[in-house]
């Protein structure tokens, strides 16, 4: 019974990562936009939803006590707008500028979460975030399963929406821009306009994932949104295969399993005073894994980034 409960808990966390990865896949896999500030957009969503749904708290702004679904919608809207502004500022420039700016966004979001106490509760974070099915909290198994069901539904909806979008004319324009920008522009498509849209939708998904997670754990703090989160999501997408929604989901579950498994392993293998060091070794291993995959299997498990190969620039056999 405990095992099922843990399995449900594990899968819920993994699927929340999967939603973030799906958002990143729209930005990177489909559109080729490099976002180094994933954690920032997730944090924006989490805090937005938390502020909208928590009961009134005199110590800080808000606590509006709105329903959870409204909080999620708000999270998507605010994170999407933040992504749109970021994209608008940088997408007419070289692609690296977007990377640098998004990195800055995540730094600043963390700074605001940590220091703007009136808005975000500072280092102590926001607690008492309403949880769906809170009435079931006495029976952990049922509670975990019902949360898993919710997250699974959200993931499925996000997936279906993205699959539909990528097959729609809109998705085809994005692919065309990624594959051959000049040709797409010569057909009258505004590269910047479409890219800002894709970046905003991806950011909204990340915000949604942040909100879902905030309501799952009931408590958020600035530490949850360190650059490590961005890194984890990138590894998930690259392992799964950029460009593939299936890859994003499978990669998330797989990498989260490796992460949680190796974390549990170091917890049993190393004495408590060495565990911080063992944890950093774990990050080294994942970082090296990212680089090795980029070098030897850039398509990951299910990736379909076939661009450039067709032009014979690199006539490698697909491995």
């Amino acid at each position: 019974m405990d095992l099922i409960g843990y399995g449900a808990f594990f899968l819920t966390t993994a699927l929340i990562f999967a939603i973030i990865s799906l958002g990143l896949n729209l930005q990177w896999g489909l559109t080729g936009l490099f976002n180094v500030g994933v954690a920032g957009f997730v944090a924006i969503g989490a805090y937005t939803s938390a502020l909208m749904t928590t009961p009134d708290d005199p110590a800080r702004f808000g606590g509006f006590g709105l329903p959870i679904l409204i909080g999620w919608a708000g999270a998507m809207a605010v994170a999407g707008i933040a992504a749109a502004v970021t994209g608008f500022a940088t997408l007419r420039l070289r692609s690296d500028y977007l990377a640098i700016t998004t990195f800055g966004v995540s730094v600043v979001v963390q700074l605001v979460a940590l220091n703007a106490q009136k808005l975000t509760g500072g280092a102590f974070g926001v607690g008492f975030i309403p949880r769906p099915f809170a009435g079931l909290a006495e029976t952990p198994l049922l509670f975990n399963l019902s949360n898993l069901a919710i997250v699974a539904v959200v993931t499925l909806l996000a997936w279906l929406a993205l699959e539909h979008l990528s097959r729609s004319p809109w998705g085809r324009v994005l692919k065309a821009l990624r594959e051959d920008e000049r040709a797409a522009i010569s057909l009258g498509k505004s590269a910047r306009f479409y890219r800002v849209q894709a970046f905003a939708v991806g950011g909204a998904l990340m915000g949604l994932a942040g909100a879902v997670q905030a309501h799952f754990t009931g408590f958020i703090a600035p530490d949850n949104y360190a650059p490590m989160l961005t890194f984890q999501v990138w590894v998930m997408l690259i392992v799964g295969g950029s460009g593939s929604n299936l890859g994003a989901v499978v990669g998330s579950v797989l990498v989260w399993a490796i992460w949680a498994g190796s974390g549990a392993l170091t917890a049993t293998l190393f004495p408590p005073e060495q565990q911080a060091r063992a944890a950093s070794l774990q990050i080294v291993a994942i970082g090296v894994m990212l680089c090795v995959i980029l070098l030897f299997r850039p398509n990951g498990l299910f990736g379909n980034l076939t661009y450039r190969r067709r032009f014979g620039l690199k006539a490698r056999k697909p491995s």
Binding site: F34, D96, M228, S280, G287, C291, K314
Partner: peptide, 25 residues
């Protein structure tokens, strides 16, 4: 050599994480 500069940026991001954690180790 593969000609996609943004992949190099991503690799530098992974390398940065690994280098930093190695120092912590």
């Amino acid at each position: 050599a593969r000609g996609q500069s943004i992949i190099v940026v991503m690799a530098s991001f992974g390398a940065s994480m690994a280098l930093r954690s190695l120092l912590e180790f």
